[in-house]
């Protein structure tokens, strides 16, 4: 396949960036999207030019490190992570625009790499449970009903990649937060801190500069793990109950 790429290049956090056009010939449809970028970078290296900076780690769709806005779709046209996206999802001769996640809370560090530590700070504010460490408790010591366990697992699939924020017209982090609040709120272990958790996470979310949700649904559509919009409803309900002292 022969492709034209328009890639956001930016030297540093405060530098001005721009879209730069590259021609990449002879791409196999079986390559992953990141392998295609690796091919481009090898060539740029050989030419003595600065390679394109982008994030990745596991390349198995489980760590949440990768994430690119690909021709206007977060993680590209398939429901998966950028590392699990293959070039067969594109047409020969296609022009692909590649941009970093755009959110004030996710400042660009370089080229396509953004700083997502705002998510870490939301987790630090409330995305934890307090438990005694040491002797592992018996697995059956705390029973969890099947439906709650299933729902907690569904929400726990969130890998924190930030596609929800990237796709949201308001750059809101509420699908991420909803997934965490649902994940811990469905389990007995998550109950003691439930009210503080939601209040602290929402306060941090707002302070980090994420926008508010308008229930549009772009987040859930972009989510590589298919986290449904109803976790935001659960987040809203928890916040309302926490603030009226009913949680």
């Amino acid at each position: 396949m022969n492709l034209t790429l328009k890639i956001w290049r930016q030297d540093g956090p405060t530098a001005r960036g721009e879209l730069v056009t590259y021609q990449v010939p002879d791409i196999s449809p079986d390559m992953s999207f990141l392998e295609m970028l690796d091919v481009l970078n090898e060539r740029l290296n050989a030419e003595g030019k600065e390679p394109v900076a982008f994030d990745s780690d596991c390349r198995e769709g489980i760590c949440g490190m990768c994430g690119l806005m690909i021709s206007g779709d977060a993680h590209g046209p398939e429901k998966t992570t950028t590392c699990q996206l293959h070039m067969r999802s594109f047409k020969d001769g296609e022009t692909i625009t590649i941009e970093p996640w755009r959110a004030t809370a996710f400042p660009v560090l370089r080229d396509l790499v953004v700083d997502r530590t705002a998510f870490d700070r939301i987790i630090q504010a409330g995305g934890f449970i307090s438990a005694n460490t040491g002797a592992a408790p018996k697995a059956e010591a705390i029973l969890v009903p099947k439906e709650n366990a299933d729902r907690a697992f569904m929400a726990a699939e969130c890998i924190g990649c930030g596609a929800c924020v990237a796709a949201c017209p308001n750059a809101s982090g509420m699908l991420f937060m909803g997934a965490k609040v649902t994940h811990l709120g469905e389990l007995p272990q998550g109950q003691p801190e439930r009210a503080q958790r939601v209040a602290a996470m929402v306060a941090t979310h707002d302070a980090e500069g994420f926008g508010g949700c308008t229930n549009i649904g772009e987040c859930s559509h972009a989510c590589p793990k298919g986290i449904p919009l109803d976790v935001i409803s659960q987040l809203n309900a928890d916040m309302r109950k926490a603030k009226s002292g009913r949680l």
Binding site: S71, P169, A171, G209, F210
Partner: peptide
């Protein structure tokens, strides 16, 4: 706040799921 939350706009952005 939503405007402030995305100070740099995308060059290309699809509305894939919204009504």
């Amino acid at each position: 706040r939503a405007n402030g939350a995305r100070s740099t706009k995308y060059a290309v952005k699809k509305a894939a799921a919204s009504s």
